[in-house]
Write a protein that binds this DNA or RNA. Structure first.
Lengths: 244, 244
DNA sequence: CGACGTGTTGATTCCTGTCAATACTCGTGG
DNA sequence: CCACGAGTATTGACAGGAATCAACACGTCG
């Protein structure tokens, strides 16, 4: 994993074919390579705070980070979950709009903002890919809005677990009857994602366990004995929402 | 308003400088003009249903439309509020992901999808502008997620009214001490926006009225005697969230 | 006038939040 | 080796805010 962080070669990069650079040809890649550098953040560390000056944009190479918004009185809502290949920052924006925090160890492939923006002007493939990725994020955000506005606590938990099942433990092949994975989020981070309190998250996890929908090994490892059963609990239509 | 819908001339179009075409030069505009056509929808009419085949993409020229998602059991969540200059549809996507409904009379400037996508390839200005607009929409969606996940019913209502104050009745100059506007949404549509029931919306509107935060003329016309007071009720920081 | 769509208000329920006590895990240091 | 503490997680008791169920008011249009 993350060999590129050691070799520095884009060709070896694990996110080469999905990140913002995925449409670039060899020439374009060489230009990107010239302005990129890697940074590592430990679990729990802040990548950047809302309002900070954003000197760079970046791709997540490995690990999980979150985008969160905080109100004056401390209420917090996660608004983005950043997995490998996801993009951080917005071209043209100098100050960060959200807090970015590493929830596991995270390796970022950073580009200084100014040169990156300059590159976007005469390298259409970057802008094209960024548009695709932003449109995808918008779809994710809208699905998330349905969850926040209309789903019950139990449905919210089931939906989040289903998301991890698809994206998180997602590298092994699709064995459609049983799968398991480690939660990359604490109960508190899950509550920030779902618009719940951490107590309610804990209670609903227990409820799903007692109902046999999930099995827990420790508090962070989850096994799903019957995926279809979990899907029923999400409140989504049975087909799994195949709009992609 | 919407003279372009009569003359067909982009130069006269009220959204010429803000819509997806705003960065286009005269040549590019001529190409767009060749594939565009106008359509009008009456209040309450469906523009398109989720799952329908999307033969076109479009800009809202005038009026207000909504993007909504519906769960099997009927629970509904609005996920987009489309005002003049906003864009409908996603290049590359053949089927609509959400229901689009006109809540007032709406005029759309439509482009057949295939020619529009072809145009995007060799007309970088369209893609660039669409990227900007999509990034803005993503910010809006994330602000909306904070509202849905963490705000109280009263704060939700106050926030929605503040949004209309900025964007809806927003054409007259910034008289920062008193303003008024017509609500473009029914109580039910407001509840879909806010993740509440229509009864709760009605109750909180009454509560804000009794508290002197708003004045109601009929049920749809709102007057804000003290904007700062309304802002306090939104739960946002005092500066009004100036990240744009 | 009566029907319909829209909006308001009341009574009651119940889901989730709040406050609080208690485990569990993991590292550090005596 | 075990005590200690910090961070994380579970569970209980209780309160409160929004949902639900229901009745009624208002305006428009036939």
């Amino acid at each position: 994993m993350a060999q590129a962080a050691q070799t520095g070669q884009c060709a070896d990069c694990p996110i080469r074919h999905r990140a913002v650079c995925s449409k670039c040809d060899a020439d374009e890649l060489r230009e990107l390579e010239a302005i990129k550098y890697y940074r590592t953040f430990e679990a729990g560390q802040a990548v950047i705070w809302a309002g900070d000056d954003m000197g760079f944009v970046a791709s997540v190479v490995s690990g999980v980070a979150t985008l969160t918004q905080t109100m004056e009185d401390g209420r917090r809502q996660m608004v983005g979950l950043l997995l490998p290949s996801d993009f951080i920052g917005r071209p043209g924006r100098t100050r960060a709009a959200y807090d970015v925090t590493a929830t596991t160890q995270v390796i970022l492939c950073c580009f200084r903002r100014k040169p990156f923006e300059a590159l976007m002007v005469d390298t259409p493939h970057i802008g094209q890919r960024l548009l695709e990725m932003t449109l995808d994020e918008l779809d994710v955000a809208r699905e998330w809005m349905l969850l926040l506005g209309r789903k019950t606590a139990r449905e919210k938990i089931a939906t989040l677990l289903a998301i991890f099942l698809r994206r998180g433990g997602g590298i092994p092949g699709p064995s459609l009857t049983s799968r398991e994975f480690d939660l990359p989020l604490t109960r508190e981070a899950m509550s920030d994602y779902l618009g719940l309190t951490l107590e309610t998250v804990s209670r609903q996890m227990s409820a799903l366990r007692k109902a046999g929908v999930i099995e827990l090994v420790g508090s962070r490892h989850v096994r799903i004995p019957d995926i279809a059963r979990l899907m029923e609990e999400t409140g989504d239509d049975s087909d799994g929402g195949m709009l992609v």
